[in-house]
């Protein structure tokens, strides 16, 4: 577990980091919390010539509520998200997702931006940003741009970011007051990567029909997916066991999971169906308590 030689550069600002990226191009990798990159380097699977350390850029570490959204700096650590009273109150599913990442040591170091850009097919945040329709703010040489979560994940371990761009902020639109969300994860042992996971945010109208709904899942393929077909199935309908089973069936049919040591594709499809059904039921229960009378 000894990485190949590399040059270490410490960026003091986003501008610094972009300048370094411009200078070193494809030879460089950004170092955030290092909880995925450093193990890959130690296995010599990743061998960047230059490491640009951005995880101490103070401007990138914040959680705040602003104009109807929660904004998180990309270098905000999992532990800060897990423990943030603001997040727990406004977007509990995000705190739940953060709390299920790996172990305490990893959560103390790892960052939300790092995890999203790592784009592990079994990562925890992907489902959440898709369920909530988050916006990814990026800064590059040619200026700023915003990538919607739905366009962000392009393939396993790949995102829509250009090589000279940095993800700086994740903007999560605040869910409706009577909406409730949940993140459920099926894992072999606590802290493992997900076999499958589901993030479900929904609200009910006074009649008990599903009003707004956002669903993201992992374990359905190479990238986390927004379950659009399931969202349309549920939207506007009165919830029932049969409908929830149908939702599970729908996700199962469309999923194309990757077979690995955590299970065969056939197994993972069933696991995903089960975890989605449970997440919908749990979200319903939570939403029911908030439903307008």
């Amino acid at each position: 577990m000894y990485p190949a030689a590399f040059e270490y550069l410490k960026a003091r600002s986003v501008r610094d980091a972009i300048a370094f990226l411009k200078q070193h191009g494809d030879d460089a990798k950004l170092l955030a919390g290092g909880q995925s990159l450093v193990p890959m380097m130690k296995l010599r699977v990743a061998r960047p010539k230059v490491l640009i350390d951005i995880h101490r850029i103070a401007d990138l570490n914040y959680i705040r509520e602003e104009s109807g959204a929660i904004r998180l700096g990309a270098m905000t650590r999992h532990v800060q998200i897990e423990e943030s009273s603001l997040i727990r109150e406004k977007i509990p599913m995000l705190a739940e997702a953060a709390s299920k990442i790996a172990d305490t040591q990893v959560r103390n170091r790892g960052t939300i931006g790092g995890a999203l850009v790592q784009a592990d097919p079994c990562g925890d945040y992907g489902a959440v940003v898709l369920a909530l329709n988050a916006q990814m703010k990026c800064v590059g040489q040619r200026g700023d741009r915003v990538i919607p979560a739905t366009d962000f994940f392009t393939f396993a371990y790949s995102t829509a970011l250009e090589t000279d761009e940095i993800l700086t902020e994740i903007v999560m639109p605040l869910p409706d007051k009577c909406s409730a969300g949940v993140y459920l994860k099926l894992e072999k042992v606590a802290g493992d990567f997900a076999i499958a996971s589901a993030a479900v945010q929904l609200s009910l109208d006074s009649g008990g029909a599903c009003n707004e709904v956002g669903i993201g899942v992992t374990g359905a393929g190479m990238v986390p997916q927004k379950a659009l077909a399931v969202e349309s199935l549920l939207r506007g309908k009165t919830m029932s066991s049969a409908l929830i089973d149908q939702a599970g069936q729908l996700i199962q049919e469309s999923a194309e999971p990757i077979e690995d040591l955590r299970g065969s594709a056939a197994y993972k499809k069933k696991a995903l169906g089960a975890i989605l059904r449970r997440a919908i039921r749990e979200a319903l229960q939570r939403a029911d308590a908030r439903k307008p009378s």
Binding site: P39, L43, D103, K188, V189, A190, G191, F193, L261
Partner: peptide, 14 residues
């Protein structure tokens, strides 16, 4: 299964 990513040990949570 040559790393702890693929060879999972139980932790205190189990």
């Amino acid at each position: 299964t040559s790393t702890f990513m693929d060879y999972r040990l139980p932790s205190v949570e189990e």
